[in-house]
Design a protein around this nucleic acid. Sequence first.
DNA 1: TCTAAAATTAAACAAACGTTTGATTTGATG
DNA 2: CATCAAATCAAACGTTTGTTTAATTTTAGA
Lengths: 204, 204
Amino acid sequence: MKNLTPKERILQAAVYLFARQGFDGTGLRELAARAEVNLAMINYFFGSKKGLLKEILDGFFEGYLAIAGKELAGTDNLHTKLARFINSSVRYFDSGQDALLVMITELPHDDPDIIEHKATWAGQMAEVLEKEICQPLKEITGQNIPATCIGPMLTSLMASRFIFAPVLDRVRGDAGNPVDIHLYTEIITSLFLQGIATEETTSN
Amino acid sequence: MKNLTPKERILQAAVYLFARQGFDGTGLRELAARAEVNLAMINYFFGSKKGLLKEILDGFFEGYLAIAGKELAGTDNLHTKLARFINSSVRYFDSGQDALLVMITELPHDDPDIIEHKATWAGQMAEVLEKEICQPLKEITGQNIPATCIGPMLTSLMASRFIFAPVLDRVRGDAGNPVDIHLYTEIITSLFLQGIATEETTSN
DNA sequence: TCTAAAATTAAACAAACGTTTGATTTGATG
DNA sequence: CATCAAATCAAACGTTTGTTTAATTTTAGA
């Protein structure tokens, strides 16, 4: 923890606190204290509080976009590629849960300084999905679902466990444990590719 | 707008602003101005800023829970009930987009005053889903997926369009319009029940 | 019409906010 | 060792925050 550079400690503390208290709900003094850094260092390194948020969002989107580019490319069939993408993405979300929560909770807010920033990443993501998922899907099944529809669906679906995690911890108490991360990935993959119900569910 | 009671105007302004700026990002003076109400009236009617948030969350969860109870009950087959639930829920989310965004963006935050409140609603929802979806699904297909897993998935999936809407508006510009709400519902229902891919997608 | 409760108001409160300043310390390079 | 830039610091800046108070107006019931 202490072998990190001050800048890294600030970033780490910010992700932790923003995920639990929100961006506006977190004060820079509390953040500086957790990072064991002088208050002024935050503006020194990141220019402003919003600059800090931008860097967090950048880090998340960069990794997410890289996964999409890597796992969805190639000549494998759509089924295989999607399963690979879901597997990598859920792993990525799991390894950086706090950053994911910051992204999700700040996504709908329309701060002029931040929203263009987010739209740029979302646009790049949509391009990849359009090319690697939507167009193949259209050629094979005939259904034309835009990337701006399927992207949010997939992302929200994969993120669902982490979005609800803080609340579900209180619902279950210590009793029922959540499904482990591998089973979670399998459920989502199966759901996305085959749906939840079989033919049998249409009968009584 | 002005034929509403002061309390209703406060609630309306709060949902609008919280959805766009977040709970902590919205000041009570700005809120009072939008509601055309004196600043002190907010604490007079709701006790505190958090009391106002609680009332918003209550309103949303109450409606959502009622839909689950209504659409998932009965003797119809699981397929039919799920399609009905998705249809009603998406309609509900669409008609109250701002309230949905407030719920989603405040969900992960672990404010001690609020989180128990959210957990109570989530617990009730989980009970309904466990009884009406998970147990029938287990009897029919054999797979045992807990409600605390499938609930967040379904909710996130149905909410995806609204969570990403503010960003997607910037991505598309004025060019590509989003799929309309009925098609969106159909896509989600089809996805949840049958999955996105057919057998053909497993081949090259 | 009188009265008591409800509603509304302006003003002030201390606390916390993000940011900036100017001085001091640190670390590497010449 | 001297030097310069990077890093760190304590302190203060002016705003804005949520909340409270006390006085006033409005409303409704007897």
